[in-house]
Amino acid sequence: MHHSELIAQLLKVIAAGLLLISFAMLASRRTQQLITLFAWQGAMLFVSTCLVAYSSGLTEMYYSAGLTLLLKVIALPWILHRLIHRLGAQWDSEQLVNVPTTMMAGLALVIFAFGLAQPITSMATTITRHTLGIALAVILLAFLMMITRRKAVTQVIGFLAMENGLFFAATSATYGMPMVIELGIALDLLVGVFILGIFFFQIREQFDSLDLSNLESLKED
């Protein structure tokens, strides 16, 4: 009893960490920094999945945790690193739209997410149920990040962060999704990042920059 209490406490700490990282991503200016934060987010996710697996005794959760470690902590950050090195974009910084305002919007989203999670939390029986609100907040914050950014690479990182949030929501509400679906999603992510990487090169070749505001000229009048 004492044991599971401790794990629940630890999970809450990790969830808080995830939320903190999300806010950090929202405010960070450099692409390099964002990738590091994304890797950290993956690591947090890995630890939390391991803890859930340990407390629930589900072996397939360990596989899921392993997959997270391989893909989100090692593979994807590494691919993104190489990508921005080759694009020469690692020291790119971007003009953010008014960080304090974004933070305020983020806060509002967190409150909204908690309100939303309330009825679901009261129904769920998992050990992680109290973290569902945070999981939703992570999704919404990542979305907000995508909206406020202008560079192509940060868009992709925002997209991946959203997927992290979804994964966290799945583990906290129902002890994860079925293995097949998780494998599928993992593959999709990998392929998606490859394809987006190709797009980066194409966009840069076309516009000499990765700034997405150039795409506005594609609009039909």
Partner: peptide
């Protein structure tokens, strides 16, 4: 609008 951010 042609702006990705707006579509998002």
């Amino acid at each position: 609008r042609g702006r990705l951010a707006v579509y998002l």
